[in-house]
Design a protein around this nucleic acid. Structure first.
Length: 611
RNA sequence: GCCGGCGUAGCUCAAUCGGCAGAGCAUCUGAUUUGUAAUCAGAAGGUUGUCGGUUCAAGUCCGACCGUCGGCUCCA
C-alpha cells in the first residue's frame, strides 16, 4: 500500500476519520477477545474500513456479534484518542514487547507493526494512538473520543495478502462500516439491498440474456441467448455506423495465430499465463515433419499490425484506422471471473489507428470525442478518466526502454487532454508496456471498479513488427499506433449497461422492443394484431405477440416482468377504429392512438436511439 | 492461483438431533372469450454438484474434486 503523505492525511474527511477510528475500536475488541492477534493495516476505504489481522482463530460472521458487543463497550467507555509522538527507539521497543496493536505488553513482538515502522522515513514523526488500553502505531488522525463512534457494523471477512503481495502471508481482513448516526447506517444497508437487485448476474438470468454453461462450455465463457445477442447486435451496429462515419475501415482476422505472432509482439512469454495454452499442430510431409504452436488470440493488435504490413504504405495512406469486433480469449485466473464483467472470451470493440506524429493529436482527440458521444447516448455520467503514465523505475522492465519516446508521447496525450478540457486524473506507473493510456473507470452496482473503455498509445510494438511507411522525404518511418476500445468488450459493456439501466433498456436496445397483446380470441383481432406484428418485423423491430387465451392483465403482467419496452394492446374496439392502445414498461398506459402513428413513433425512437 | 462461505426440481426456497425429499412460480394437459400488473383444475418434474468415506441409516457428518459467491492478486 502507498504511504499517504502528510498533506493527504490532513485532507482526511470527517467520515474517513470516523471510520479509521472505528477500525481501531474493532482492533481493540479483537485484541481483547484474542490477545495473540497480530495487526497489520487498518485504513478507511470507500464504504467503510477494514483491519488486516493474523490470528490463529478463524474469524467468521458468527463472531461478529461478539466483536460488536466489545466494540459497543469500548465506545460506551468514551476514552479519548491520544496522540503520542515517540522516538524510533521507543517505537521499536513497543514493537519488540508486542505492545503495538495490543492492549498490553506481550511475549511476542508486533511483527507487522515493526515492519511498517521501517517504511516511515527518518526524520518524520512516529506517532502512536492510545484509546483506553489499546495502543497502535498510527499516523491518524482520529475522532476525539471513542464515544464519537455511534453507528457501526461489521460486514464481511475475507483474506488479503500482507501489503497486497502474493508472496506475503495471507491475513484475515475484517470489513466494517461506520456512519455518523444510525439513520445513515441503515440507509447505507438499504441502498446495498437495492444495488443487489441491479446486479447484472441476477437480471441477466431473469431476462434470459446469457447463461454460463460451466459444465459444457466452461467457466467465463458466456453463451449469449437470443435476447442478449440482440443487445450485442445493436452495440455493434452503433459502433460500425460511428466508425464508418469516422473514416475507419473494417477488417476481419482469425481467432488463432502462430507462436511467432506473439513472440514478435512481445506478449510471449510475459503474457503467457493470461493466454490459453498453445495447440501443437503437426504437418506430416515427404520425409519431413513440421510442428507449429498455435495460440488463441488474446488481443487483436498483432493481427492488425500484420494487415498494416500486408501492403506498401505511404504517408498519404495515413492515418489508417483498422476496426474489428474481434473475439479474444484470455485465460483469466478462476478467482478473477465475475459474471459478464470478467470473462475468458471477449468481443472487443477494437481498432488500431496508425498515424504520423503530426497526426497524433487530432487522432487521439477524435477518439476521446467518440467516447463522449457514446457516453451521451447511454446517459453515462458517473465515470472517471484515468491517464496512466510510466515511471522511471519501471524503464526497461515494466516498460519498453525508450525514455525519450515515453516523455514525448505522455506530453502529447497530456496536451490533448488539457486542450479538450476533459476532466481526468493522472496515475503514474500504470501505463501499458508499450505506451501511456487513458482508461475510463466505472463502478458496478455492488461498487466494484472496472475499466469500461480504453485508449492507448503504442510507440513500441509497430517497431517490433518492422512496420513502416514511406514519408515525404523518401525515408521509411515507423508509425505511431493508437489502440482504442470505446465500448470495451460486449461482455463487460453489456454487464455494465444491465446495471446502469437496471434491465430497463431504452427502446433501441431493448431485447424485446414491442409485444402485441390481444384481448379475446376473435379472429379479426388476431388478424389485426398479426398485421401490426408483421409490419414491425418487416421494419427490423424486435417484436413478438401474445395471442394466448389469458386475461389481458395476465399478459401485461408477463410482459412487464419480461421488461418488454412497449406493449400494444389490441381488442375488438381497436380493430374497428384502426387504433392501438400503447403501454410503456414502467410507465403504464399511454392511451389509444392511430396504428400508423404508433408504428411511426416506434421507428423514429429506434432510429434516433432515444434514451 | 490464494483464503473463506455456499451448492436441494428450470427459478426462489423448505426439510427439527443423522430417520419415507416438499411448497410457490415456471413447464405440460384440459377448461375459461377476457380492456391495462397474475383465471381455474390436473399432471409431470430429483442418483440433493461429482466421487469417495463414516453409519443399521447421509440432503444433513468427514475428505477430495468441480462450480459459484465475498475478498486478495490480476485485468477490457
Amino acid at each position: 500500500m502507498e504511504r499517504k503523505t502528510l498533506d493527504q492525511r490532513e485532507e482526511m474527511s470527517d467520515l474517513e476519520r470516523l471510520r479509521h477510528s472505528c477500525a481501531h475500536v474493532m482492533a481493540a475488541a479483537i485484541a481483547k477477545l484474542w490477545p495473540d492477534a497480530q495487526f497489520a493495516d487498518g485504513p478507511a476505504v470507500d464504504n467503510g474500513f477494514y483491519y488486516d489481522v493474523e490470528l490463529s482463530h478463524r474469524i467468521t460472521p458468527e463472531d461478529f456479534p461478539k466483536i460488536e458487543a466489545e466494540m459497543k463497550a469500548i465506545t460506551k467507555a468514551n476514552a479519548p484518542f491520544e496522540r503520542v509522538i515517540v522516538s524510533r527507539a521507543e517505537a521499536l521497543k513497543l514493537g519488540e514487547t508486542g505492545h503495538l496493536g495490543a492492549l498490553a505488553d506481550r511475549s511476542v513482538p508486533s511483527k507487522f507493526k515493526l515492519d511498517l515502522l521501517k517504511d516511515i522515513p527518518e526524520g518524520e514523526d512516529i506517532s502512536c494512538y492510545r484509546s483506553g488500553d489499546f495502543l497502535d502505531l498510527c499516523a491518524g488522525p482520529h475522532v476525539m473520543r471513542t464515544g464519537n463512534i455511534r453507528a457501526f457494523k461489521l460486514t464481511t471477512v475475507a483474506s488479503a495478502y500482507y501489503k497486497g503481495d502474493e508472496k506475503n502471508p495471507q491475513l484475515q481482513r475484517i470489513y466494517g462500516t461506520a456512519f455518523p448516526n444510525k439513520t445513515e447506517l441503515d440507509a447505507y444497508f438499504a441502498m446495498l439491498e437495492e444495488a443487489k437487485k441491479r446486479d447484472h448476474r441476477k437480471i441477466g438470468a431473469e431476462m434470459g440474456l446469457y447463461v454460463m454453461d460451466t459444465e459444457y462450455t466452461g467457466p467465463g465463457l458466456p453463451l449469449w441467448l437470443p435476447k442478449g445477442a440482440a443487445i450485442c447486435e445493436q452495440l455493434e451496429k452503433l459502433a460500425k455506423e460511428t466508425e464508418f462515419a469516422g473514416g475507419y475501415v473494417l477488417v476481419k482476422t482469425p481467432h488463432v495465430a502462430k507462436e511467432k505472432m506473439y513472440k514478435t509482439s512481445g506478449h510471449l512469454p510475459y503474457y503467457a499465463e493470461s493466454m490459453f495454452p498453445p495447440m501443437e499442430v503437426k504437418e506430416a510431409g515427404e520425409g519431413t515433419e513440421t510442428a507449429d504452436r498455435y495460440y488463441l488470440k488474446a488481443m487483436n493488435c498483432p493481427h492488425h499490425h500484420r494487415i498494416f504490413a500486408a501492403e506498401q504504405r505511404s504517408y498519404r495512406d495515413l492515418p489508417l484506422r483498422l476496426a474489428e469486433y474481434g473475439c479474444c480469449y484470455r485465460y483469466e485466473q478462476s478467482g478473477e471471473l465475475f459474471g459478464l464483467m470478467r470473462v475468458r472470451s471477449l468481443n472487443m470493440n477494437d481498432s488500431h489507428i496508425y498515424c504520423t506524429p503530426e497526426q497524433f493529436a487530432a487522432e487521439f482527440n477524435a477518439v476521446n470525442e467518440m467516447y463522449l458521444k457514446y457516453f451521451k447516448i447511454f446517459g453515462l455520467e458517473k465515470y472517471q478518466m484515468r491517464f496512466s503514465t510510466s515511471a522511471p523505475e519501471g524503464m526497461g522492465k515494466k516498460y519498453v526502454d525508450e525514455p525519450e519516446l515515453w516523455k514525448q508521447t505522455e506530453d502529447m496525450v497530456r496536451h490533448v487532454l488539457k486542450d479538450s478540457g476533459i476532466n481526468y486524473i493522472e496515475v503514474p506507473n500504470e501505463a501499458a508496456f508499450y505506451g501511456p493510456k487513458i482508461d475510463v473507470q466505472v463502478w458496478s452496482a455492488i461498487g466494484r471498479e472496472f475499466t469500461i473503455a480504453t485508449n492507448q498509445v503504442d510507440f513500441a510494438v509497430p517497431k517490433r513488427f518492422g512496420l513502416t511507411y514511406r514519408d515525404k522525404d523518401n525515408t521509411d518511418k515507423t508509425p505511431l499506433c493508437i489502440h482504442r476500445a470505446p465500448l470495451g468488450t460486449h461482455e463487460r459493456f453489456i454487464g455494465f449497461l444491465i446495471e446502469h439501466y437496471a434491465g430497463n433498456f431504452p427502446l433501441w436496445l431493448a431485447p424485446e422492443q414491442v409485444r402485441v397483446l390481444t384481448i379475446g380470441e376473435d379472429a379479426a383481432v388476431v388478424e389485426f394484431a398479426r398485421g401490426i406484428l408483421n409490419e414491425l418485423r418487416a421494419a427490423m423491430v424486435r417484436a413478438d405477440a401474445d395471442y394466448g387465451t389469458d386475461k389481458i392483465n395476465g399478459k401485461i403482467q408477463r410482459a412487464e416482468q419480461a421488461k418488454v419496452h412497449t406493449m400494444l394492446v389490441v381488442g375488438p374496439r381497436d380493430v374497428a377504429a384502426g387504433a392501438v392502445s400503447v403501454r410503456v414498461h414502467g410507465k403504464g398506459n399511454q392511451g389509444v392512438k392511430p396504428r400508423a402513428e404508433v408504428i411511426a413513433n416506434i421507428l423514429q425512437a429506434i432510429r434516433e436511439r432515444c434514451p
